[in-house]
Design a binder for these strands. Structure first.
Lengths: 338, 338
DNA sequence: CTGAAAGCGCTTACAG
DNA sequence: CTGAAAGCGCTTACAG
């Protein structure tokens, strides 16, 4: 028979409803909302769905309900283990709850983030997780106008209506600087790459602390826009010791830089921490294995991912989280390099 | 007026069609297929779409066409830089072509991969990118029955109808072993973690090479199911030198292990390469900065991502790639540690 | 080369 | 607590 069938052969809600002897809409409600349907029917429909191996069509659902189960998660980079830890934690919360995290990488480029946002928002996401507050005005508008619940990760703010989970980048930068001062260091250099907003906040924490102690010297700040890497850390240390031979400490803005710096110090025969103390940031894998083991700031990225995702879950279900802004603690991890 | 409107306020194809003065279907064709529509109309429709800021609804499109623009990319881990490089390359090819790579992390767990597959396949993906050939029978069935074009990454096979891009893990393992032999090493240990199928292939390459040379000793194979890490590499080296003090080389299965091994050797006062040569695998970031710089096997992961994505692009557009199986070259990178 | 009709698989008001 | 109707926004045959 020449039927105009475009059927995909897929098992649909109608099949389930027929099997269970109810209407399609009752089947739909039994499978989701649950509440308004009789308990007996819910069981019957569930059983039919299981028997037939029914898998709901996300596209149809998204179209009909104007909302999908996708949750874009925008991070700057995958090559910093920090964000991998964050994503793992997010996934562990969102996936079991029935949502699909979609990882988007912005490369610290606001234009790229805007493009991704434009794309992902077209998919009618259920929620949105983004990194920090630094973005284009257009991106801000896109988020606001979409009406999609959004949680900001890594930094915090008191701005009303903004849900965020992070830690104080500035205080973390200050804390490590204070530690170095407490060890008697006075000529403390700061070496950073990438120069994203959070890096600059840490630099500010370093700066204020040294100013307060009367030890600040702007010539000891080495801010380099390149991508952070072990090799760059090595170069930065070499540059510092050759141009500022009187430094007695280097605070690197990320552990990969610090690891490279440590290796370069070795190569140059510079004793750490005797002549120069070295400290890193983020406490990444391997830092505890360095020679000497590297002092660092352990940042709560897994917990940020976890709590950020949980906050988003609440927002997506229409609840109001107890706190709009959650500030978590970082932790100084002092090993032998400082 | 009490209209039963469920409108989302979104700009639809109808709006574009009205603006351009054509029918909805012509607008649809003008925006995509392009071919059968008059060039003048295409321009008119395109202009209308731009003017209104039209963004097609992926859900509606997926529902109507039984195919989305999503492309799940399943990798074992994000904490191995290898896969981050792979994903970057995939993204660079797929995203500009209008597809959305969806990163899925399997943690080397076939059951987890199966679950992800079941989920992602419900989204009617346009294509599929998976790592290796090791999966559950159910997962294999899911892929086959879905009819979704699929490209297998990292390994190759001659099995008919299977599209794959990779390199010979076995030969790569053999090549580094041969290098160590050529430097006069005879008591060569092999230290591996994770024990995924590709690791075991490299172990097999090591084994065969040493057997051929008459140097094989199964007691020098240290296979550890734990996750690969710098700290584990340090432990493995310590174990090796204490239980097999006569070894003159260690071939680590991944650079993080090798870096840890190198650091442990330092701590123990073992000269590298004088007393023990150390080699790694994958040539990850930082290996060139180690003391001494680490010999490794540079694997073509970026190219695998690139070519794998390009192959998939062809399959998705209905073309037949020139080659079903693409084997790329790895490269021995000999530095000072061996 | 262009269009009117039907349909993809689901959910949302509206009734009962 | 359950159902018949309409609709989400698009594309696929089928005509012309």
């Amino acid at each position: 028979m020449p039927r105009k069938s475009r059927s995909t052969g897929r098992i649909t809600l109608d099949d389930v409803a027929r099997e269970a002897g109810v209407s399609r809409i009752t089947a739909s409600r039994a499978l989701h909302g649950g509440r308004v349907v009789g308990a007996e029917l819910v069981a019957r429909v569930q059983q039919a769905a299981d028997k037939l191996g029914y898998v709901p069509d996300p596209a149809a659902r998204a179209l009909a309900s104007a909302r999908s189960t996708q949750v874009p998660v925008l991070v700057p980079l995958l090559s910093n283990a920090l964000f991998v830890d964050l994503l793992e934690a997010v996934h562990r919360v969102l996936f079991p709850a029935g949502f699909q995290p979609m990882i988007g990488v912005t490369h610290y480029d606001p234009a790229e983030e805007e493009l991704l946002l434009r794309n992902y928002l077209a998919h009618r996401p259920a929620g949105l997780l983004v990194t920090g507050f630094d973005r284009t005005e257009a991106a801000r508008q896109l988020i606001a106008q979409s009406g999609v619940p959004c949680v900001y990760l890594m930094e915090t703010t008191d701005a009303p209506g903004v849900h965020c989970v992070g830690f104080s980048q500035l205080e973390a930068g200050a804390a490590m600087t204070e530690h170095l001062l407490s060890r008697g260091r006075r000529r403390i250099a700061f070496a950073a790459a990438q120069l994203d907003p959070r890096t600059l906040l840490r630099a500010e924490g370093y700066r204020r602390t040294l100013q307060k102690a009367g030890c600040y010297d702007s010539r000891l700040e080495l801010l380099c826009p390149e991508r952070s890497s072990i090799a760059l850390g090595a170069r930065l240390l070499e540059e510092l010791v050759s141009t500022r031979p009187d430094i007695d400490a280097v605070f690197f803005n990320n552990d990969d830089l610090a690891q490279g710096g440590l290796l370069a110090a070795h190569r140059l025969g510079i004793k750490v921490p005797e002549r120069i103390a070295i400290a890193g940031f983020n406490d990444l894998a391997g830092s505890d294995q360095m020679l000497p083991p590297l002092s660092s700031v352990h940042t709560p990225r897994a917990e940020i991912g976890d709590q950020g995702a949980r906050t988003l879950l609440q927002l997506m279900s229409g609840q109001t989280p107890a706190q709009a802004s959650i500030e978590l603690a970082f932790q100084l991890v002092i090993r032998d390099s400082s």
